[in-house]
Design a protein around this nucleic acid. Sequence first.
DNA 1: ATTCATGCAAACCGTTTGCACCCGA
DNA 2: TCGGGTGCAAACGGTTTGCATGAAT
Lengths: 154, 154
Amino acid sequence: MGAILLEEHQEYLVKLRQTGLKNTRHRIKMLEILDNSPQPISADDIFVRLKEQDDRISLSTVYRSLEALVRNELVNKVSFDNDNRTTFELNRLQHHHFLVCIGCNKIITVEDCPIHEYEEEVSRTRGFEVIGHKLELYGYCSDCAPKHHFTHEH
Amino acid sequence: MGAILLEEHQEYLVKLRQTGLKNTRHRIKMLEILDNSPQPISADDIFVRLKEQDDRISLSTVYRSLEALVRNELVNKVSFDNDNRTTFELNRLQHHHFLVCIGCNKIITVEDCPIHEYEEEVSRTRGFEVIGHKLELYGYCSDCAPKHHFTHEH
DNA sequence: ATTCATGCAAACCGTTTGCACCCGA
DNA sequence: TCGGGTGCAAACGGTTTGCATGAAT
């Protein structure tokens, strides 16, 4: 809900300037929306929230702006097996992974990473030079696990 | 190329029967194509190869058959960040991961898995009940790594 | 003034669906 | 025979693009 702090607004502005991207009607708001979202969201989600504030907005602009923000590494593109839509998150420069709840589709971000040694091992033993990786765990969150067990009890 | 061994053909037949799926014009061929493919392939790839042998085939049949084969766990659905198309592989009942080459798009299957303990840890510390996971490493294969280094040398 | 961004509508492309016909069990 | 499978064409849904206009630097 609440208004965005001035400092945060400034921070987004600075980031935009650094990339050379223009500070247009919607971009700061897009960054705010992404920053406030507890989990990755789709282009259409962003579009809907922008439209609440200003009717003069088109979905293609959202896609084009997201593309620019991704290209400049202010935003990450994320896709899940669960969902045909691509989703986006603010790039917080913190390596992380996701727990994807197959009960309620909630996405939980986790910041520990168990596979750095594995990357080195693969590089060493297979001659495959690892640049990055993608790890997601699928299962039931603490809300859904009990329900799931209950409905499968007998 | 080469003809499929009779035993393999039989094996596919048995698997189909077990599921209750009918042995139709294309299904055995689909399983053969998937079995012979060194990496996951798209519905359209399968469609093209089927069409080489028999013109009376439609893409929607390929999608519908794949859906049935996936539902009956003879085939796995796999998607990569690289590619908007969904791909499919024969289900060999062997847990594995992929190395995805961002140079030539080659997909390499690897059968060791570094994160079983991590799954337990997540279950224990976060109350998230892990059912499965998805891990892919992105980078350069042994063919592409040298080229990549060469073109970025100075 | 110049370059980049935008709105709108139309195109795109992978995938799904409705329907009449076909065919394997 | 009967229920699932198929071909074809049309629909779908997320995403991209062409083009003329508008706005940021």
